[in-house]
């Protein structure tokens, strides 16, 4: 009985129409992303128009990637283990982009509250410290 189920599962064949619809959706999304890139979108709240453009372009890319992974790569029809493995790559990318937090937060360093107990902290490299080298010349990214 279990054998028969396994057998039918093994021969689960996705109909051609599903693949054609996916391909057409990918084409339509590609045309949309090219057309939207040519328009300067207006500012939305604190997001500048440039950022709005970029967010839309990346959102479309993510939808395209989702379609390819779920339908073409068959993750939608795969076992739970396959679904887990496919998510690992996505989680990795999220983790690595967490490093951006470090680059964007450095300019707030040193935070005033850190100095309330001066003795508790180790000497830090700060632009305010005259004994330390000038970081603007050595590392443009961190302290531009």
């Amino acid at each position: 009985m279990a054998n028969a189920e396994a057998h039918s599962h093994e021969h689960h064949i996705v109909p051609t129409s599903t693949y054609i619809k996916t391909l057409l959706a990918l084409f339509v999304l590609m045309v949309i992303t090219v057309l939207v890139a040519g328009v300067n979108l207006p500012r939305i709240g604190f997001l500048s128009g440039t950022v709005v453009n970029q967010v839309i372009a990346l959102a479309i890319a993510l939808i395209k990637a989702f379609l390819v992974v779920t339908i073409f790569m068959g993750v939608k029809f795969g076992t739970k283990l396959i679904k887990l493995w496919a998510s690992v790559g996505f989680i990795w990318v999220l983790l690595i982009f967490g490093i951006l937090g470090d680059y964007t937060m450095r300019k707030y360093e040193p935070a005033p509250s850190w100095d309330s107990k001066a003795d508790s902290a180790l000497p830090r490299v700060t632009p305010e410290d005259p004994k330390m080298p000038d970081h603007n010349s050595t590392n443009v990214i961190i302290r531009q």
Binding site: M30, T33, V34, A37, N40, L41, S48, G49, T50, N53, Q54, A57, L58, I60, A61, K64, A65, V68, V69, F72, M73
Partner: peptide, 25 residues
């Protein structure tokens, strides 16, 4: 096929990031 789709997947992100950069405005 999985390998080939992965190559496609990378291009899906490379294309907007390099060719469709929004104009600073």
């Amino acid at each position: 096929g999985l390998y080939w789709h992965f190559v496609d997947l990378v291009w899906i992100f490379l294309f907007p990031l390099f060719y469709l950069m929004p104009k600073p405005h």
